[in-house]
């Protein structure tokens, strides 16, 4: 199986989907001849032309608004927001329009759009290029929020997102684009949305993560295996809908749960997972549920040392899991 980067798998997913379905249209800033700031749409303008790969003005509200209108008229728009930090001007369109159209129109209209956006820190992006906003959108009924953790899932989830009849936010960790490589099958395939995956079975502690932090969790699990601690690592893959059942099944086995994400810990996805497990698996819990996440501070610092403190890594997770295992 060919080995590809996270970025290449997303690029290929877009290209494969567009080749199959002429209603798929890309919209975004610099995604045309420039191929996008990260290169996710490189070559697609040349192959599919200006009607299907549309360079837009720097106006996110307008980009998403146009995409919603197209979606309601038979297209399947895939929007690229250059950085998730810039999605905020489009929140009104996403939350008040895209998420609610099916409900508001009594099922007469629906909104099959995908909004792709690079998120996350660790690239010295500072305030405006490092945020993680998945928890904010995961609070909105009517949306789906997907955060793939590796190249295989990235392409599979992208195909599923594009085929979905409702709005999907598709968050890609920018530090994963070129750093993460993995085996990616040729051609289209689907990875289900709303279904977590046990990426590593284990019996001592359940570690739940998604996105790039999932990779840190796997590295921590490897390290801990050498010290006799057997982690079960679960990739949520989508944070909305949240696959509570897979997490609960694991906690029933291990009795111990850590949730780790790059987004703020307070009221993050981990908070919801923790609450759901406490509701459904209280009598299987053998230790307090632990959460790891960014401090509740306004922004990712630019200073590299401080940026490292803000971010999670494998050592952070290993320390926390070890404490849990020994509880």
């Amino acid at each position: 199986m060919p080995v590809k980067t996270y970025l290449a798998s997303i690029h290929d997913g877009l290209e494969e989907a567009m080749a199959q379905d002429p209603t798929i249209v890309l919209l975004g800033e610099d995604i045309g001849p420039r191929g996008g700031v990260f290169g996710a749409t490189a070559g697609l303008f040349a192959r599919f032309g200006p009607d299907r790969v549309i360079d837009t003005p720097l106006a996110e509200g307008a980009i998403v608004g146009v995409a919603i209108g197209m979606a309601m008229n038979g297209f399947r728009p895939v929007v690229e927001i250059q950085f998730v930090d810039f999605i905020l001007p489009a929140v009104d369109q996403i939350v008040s329009e895209a998420a609610k159209i099916r409900y508001r129109s009594n099922n007469d209209f629906h909104c099959p759009i995908v909004i792709r956006a690079p998120y996350g820190g660790g690239v010295h992006g500072a305030l405006y290029h490092s945020q993680s906003l998945e928890a904010m959108f995961a609070h909105v009924p009517g949306l789906k929020v997907v955060v793939p953790s590796d190249p295989h899932d990235a392409k599979g989830l992208l195909h599923t997102a594009i085929a979905d009849e409702d709005p999907v936010l598709f968050f890609e960790h920018k530090a994963a684009y070129r750093r993460l490589k993995g085996e990616v099958p040729d051609g289209p395939y689907e990875v289900p949305i709303g279904q977590a995956e046990v990426k590593r079975p284990g019996r001592d502690v359940t570690v739940v993560a998604y996105g790039l932090v999932l990779q840190h969790a796997l590295a921590a699990a490897e390290e801990l295996a050498g010290r006799g601690i057997d982690c079960e690592v679960i990739d949520l893959r989508s944070v909305l809908p949240l696959d509570v059942a897979t997490v609960v099944a694991s906690v029933r086995k291990t009795g111990r749960l850590l949730i780790a994400h790059e987004d703020h810990r307070i009221l993050g996805v981990g908070s919801e997972v923790a609450a759901a497990v406490a509701e459904e698996a209280l009598f299987d819990l053998d230790a307090p549920i632990r959460r790891l996440g960014a401090p509740f501070a306004p922004a990712m610092p630019y200073n590299p040392a401080q940026e490292q403190v803000f971010l999670l890594d494998a050592a952070h997770i290993a320390r926390e899991v070890e404490a849990l295992a020994q509880f």
Binding site: F283, D284, L285, D286, A287
Partner: peptide, 16 residues
Amino acid sequence: AAPCAPGPRYSPAVRH
């Protein structure tokens, strides 16, 4: 106020 130091406490899983 310091919390009342309890005796041996068992997790929900252990008690169950």
